[in-house]
Design a protein around this nucleic acid. Sequence first.
DNA 1: TGACTTTACATATACTGTTATATATCATAT
DNA 2: ATATGATATATAACAGTATATGTAAAGTCA
Lengths: 162, 162
Amino acid sequence: MEDVIRSLGFLCLGSRLKRIGEQLQADTQRVLDRLDVPVQSSQYPLLAALDRLGPLPVGELAQALGIAQPGITRSVALLAEPGLVEVSRSNNDQRRRIVSLTRNGRRLVDAAKRDVWPGIEKAVADLCADLSGPLLDQLAAIEDGLAVAPIDRRVRNAVGAV
Amino acid sequence: MEDVIRSLGFLCLGSRLKRIGEQLQADTQRVLDRLDVPVQSSQYPLLAALDRLGPLPVGELAQALGIAQPGITRSVALLAEPGLVEVSRSNNDQRRRIVSLTRNGRRLVDAAKRDVWPGIEKAVADLCADLSGPLLDQLAAIEDGLAVAPIDRRVRNAVGAV
DNA sequence: TGACTTTACATATACTGTTATATATCATAT
DNA sequence: ATATGATATATAACAGTATATGTAAAGTCA
C-alpha cells in the first residue's frame, strides 16, 4: 500500500513531520516509563526548561517551549498535582505566576539527566547520524530506521535491559 | 529567550518535529481557507489519498496515511457531514466500508489541485530548497524561514493575492 | 483620580491522535 | 447448522495542542 503522505512530498510535509514526531514521542515514552513517575514524555521539555533556566512565569515558559500559553497552564497543573512543580505569585507583579521545580521535581530531573536522557539522545543521534542530503530523503531514512528498530529498542540495546 | 526545544537537540527531536509540523499545517490552513470549504488542512491528505488511489476501505486508508484506524473513522465522519465523501458497504464483504469522493468532494479536490496545492508545494519546496547538511541544521533553517515568512505569505507572494 | 488599554493567566471548546474494547460480519471446523 | 475464531469497523476514554474568550492586575494618560 502506497504511503500517500510520503508520496506527496513537500505538499504534506507538515503532516509528515507531525507523524514522525509523534512516533518519536511514543517511542520515548516507553523508555521514560522505566522511571515509573506519572509524567508523559511531552512534559519533559517543560521540566528541562525549568532545569536550564530556573523558575519562570507561565508566559516565558510558553516562549521557551514554543507552544501556546494554555498548553503551559495545563501542563503545569498536571505536573503540580504529583508535586513535581509548584507555583507562586510574583512579588513585583501579582498577575505573574512563577513556576519552579519542587524538591521531588529536581530529583526526577536529576535522575532523568543521569540515567535516561543520555541514552535517548544517543539513540536519536545515531538514528540521524549518517544522514545527509535533501530533507525529504533524510526523513525517509528516519522513518525506515524507526520501522526497523524504534527508539526504545535502540536505547535498550545500547545500555542493556533495565 | 532561549528556545529550549532547539537547545536540547536530539533529545527533543520528537517535540520539535511535531511543533514544526503543526506550524506548517496552521500556515497551510490559512491558504486553504480561500476555498472556503469547511475542511481542516489535516483532512486534505485523506482526500488526496482517495484522489490518488480511488475508493478505499477504512483500513486501507489508515495504512495509506500511516495513522490509526479510529482516526480514519472519525475523519471520514467529519468529511461525510459536508458531503465531500460517502461510504458504502462492500459487496463482497459486508464488514468493509468503502470510502469514496462525492461529486462535491471531487470538485473540491480538483479545485485544490489546480489552484492551491501547486502554490503550497512550491512554497514549501522553496523553503527547503537550499538546505543541506545535518538534520538539526536544516530544521533550524526551516524554523527561521517560517519565522521570517510563513507559508501562507510565501504562497501569496508567489501567485499574487486571490 | 478615573477611564481606557495592555498584559498575564485561566477556562471553554474544538480538533487530532492514541489505545482499549465492543459489535458485526466472515471463515472455518465440527 | 452451529459454534469458534478472525477481521473490519465503530465507539469510548484519554492526552495533547490550538483558538477564542473571560478575568484580574498593571500601566497610561487626561
